[in-house]
Design a protein around this nucleic acid. Structure first.
Lengths: 111, 111
DNA sequence: CTTGCATACCTCGCCACACCAGGTATAGTA
DNA sequence: TACTATACCTGGTGTGGCGAGGTATGCAAG
């Protein structure tokens, strides 16, 4: 998978995945990977800096928690700003994808 | 428009646009811009290096020509390798777009 | 004639970011 | 004890879009 693909969609994908219930890094990575049937994979060197960026932008808030087995995990949740941003990114993504599809002559439509 | 969007799709978009008849830089830029209803725009500092990369990779071949009005233009055509690459990129794009749409919960299908 | 604009090409420096490779630490298992 | 999976982090490298700058021509307006 072309790394530029991930670059284009990582933000909305992470926000959406967290909105969908995945809360900490490893879990988020697994969820993205599975939800894309193994096609999208956020490497750790990509994932963690991305989460930090989103947190710094105020789209995510983080809390360290101790799991039942004793492992420390950093749990993320969407902020109100994050939810708004996700909505905007979804729209942007759809417009972009539609444009590229049109240029490539691919017939498609959103249901 | 997010520059990372262009980054993800510039190659197939350029190859397809050239395959569709646009042959020199300025014309290609205009064609992309119009075919996307003004949404996609390859800046000159993006376009020309990209064309050079594609040529260096053997996907495009270039010929300098003199237009009727006397302007020099660099005309690009797809090589056989370029056509194969375009086909591959179209498939990759579709898979990627489908994955992102799925994660974002967008109901979508190619006809 | 000269000023200005569209056309047409190019390149350099900046910056953002995915990736790789490396690091740390814990729980469970062989 | 050793290995694996989990779980987090970061520094260096390379790619590439973008802005700003440059050069040159054709044409129209003043």
């Amino acid at each position: 998978m072309n790394p530029d693909f991930l670059r284009a969609a990582l933000e909305p994908v992470l926000l959406e995945t967290i909105a969908g219930g995945a809360s900490y890094g490893y879990e988020i990575a697994r969820a993205v990977h599975e939800a894309s049937d193994g096609k999208l994979l956020a490497q750790e060197g990509t994932l963690y800096p991305a989460l930090h960026r989103l947190e710094k932008q105020g789209l995510l808030s983080a809390k360290w928690k101790q799991s039942a087995e004793g492992r420390r995990r950093k749990h993320y949740t969407l902020t109100a700003t994050g939810r708004k941003r996700l909505a905007a990114l979804r729209t942007q993504w759809q417009e972009f994808a539609a444009s590229v599809n049109q240029i490539l002559g691919l017939t498609f439509h959103y249901a």
